[in-house]
Design a protein around this nucleic acid. Structure first.
Lengths: 194, 194
DNA sequence: AATCAACACAAACGAATGTTTGTTAGTATG
DNA sequence: CATACTAACAAACATTCGTTTGTGTTGATT
């Protein structure tokens, strides 16, 4: 008998690591903490992973590549720019809800990546931001958006969508759909009544 | 001769600590790192501060009490709610620009506060959020704002204002005033052109 | 039955951590 | 001049860290 061919212990380590890193930070989480959560000794984890840094890399790059490939999909559609931006906002919220721990780690602990990875990650993030910004710029050119500073719009949207991690709990007053609708309203039509 | 009665070395430590904590995180900054920046040995710092934790506490609570007292001032005016919210947004941006390192630490490293302080800090933050939310709620009731979910509006604003720390550099394309104007436009009238 | 890889463990490693200790030089106060 | 305080230092402290090593067990393969 075997649990699953090619043990899933590695996957379990990554999942528990994401939770702990989110909760206590990368530096604040020891390999012994993590091992305790997984249910083995710290030394045993090295049968499944190369190092603590490798865990961080795997988490961060899984998240960044998800964002980048999803951005490419949205870019390829021929919806109005308003709809593309809405789709991106929904993407961020969904990922945050479904994979919140990993997304939080990629948002906060990426700076502890060891050096070739650090530069690579920053480039990936910049690439994503460039693509996102281009959609906003084109939307302004097409007359769909107000002529606001593109960087300000970009980072306002990206940041506004981050707090979901701090706030959303499955049994909360708002469903995921209501949450999306409310955030989209805030960002696209603003707080003030016209 | 003396440099200044009641040495400012303690203040210097706090300032350098804020910079380092922002840059490398609380856990990622060692007392030897910090001492090096201050220009003395690690042991010597204990003539000026009680512990590493105390440094974090002093930074975090200085920031939280600034926010709370400024909120009280704004609450006391009798401007329209739109103007009160704008004033709060401007307050956040100004504090971020003028005291960015400390604000960043209070935003990111508060979770490493030791225990009585941790609870106290969370309460202070909750108190601030409650006051901010009340202004939004009253603004909706007064017909100045759209009937959006209050928590969503609150956290969208608070988050949207945080990225300034990552982005603003004194010699940037946008002045502080232009930055404020753009963010306020985004948050109050939205991205979409009507 | 023998072999082998996978995987768990205890023990230990060196490095780094926050902090304490003991001491010393300089300076203000009586 | 004697006293007391401030603030610097080197050295060492115990602890924790990520990781390595060596060893044992288990279950599948040959």
């Amino acid at each position: 008998m075997l649990t699953t061919r090619k043990s899933n212990k590695r996957q379990l380590i990554l999942e528990e690591a994401a939770k702990l890193f989110k909760q206590k930070g990368f530096g604040g989480t020891s390999m012994r903490d993590l091992a305790g959560e997984v249910g083995i000794e710290a030394a045993s984890m090295y049968n499944h992973i190369r190092s603590k840094d490798e865990i961080l890399e795997l988490i961060c790059f899984r998240v960044s590549s998800t964002y980048i490939s999803q951005l490419a999909e949205i870019e390829a559609t021929d919806a109005p720019y308003v709809e593309k931006i809405k789709a991106l906002i929904r993407l961020h919220i969904r990922l945050m809800i479904e994979d919140g721990a990993a997304v939080s780690v990629a948002n906060h602990d990426w700076k502890y990546l060891p050096e070739p990875a650090l530069t690579e990650f920053k480039q990936a993030r910049k690439q994503y931001e460039k693509g996102f910004a281009a959609l906003i710029e084109q939307g302004i050119a097409a007359g769909e958006f107000q002529p606001v500073n593109v960087s300000v719009a970009l980072f306002t949207i990206l940041s506004a969508v981050r707090w979901v991690e701090l706030w959303y709990r499955p049994g909360r007053e708002l469903s995921a759909e209501e949450l999306e609708a409310n955030i989209i309203t805030m960002l696209l039509t603003g707080l003030e009544k016209k």
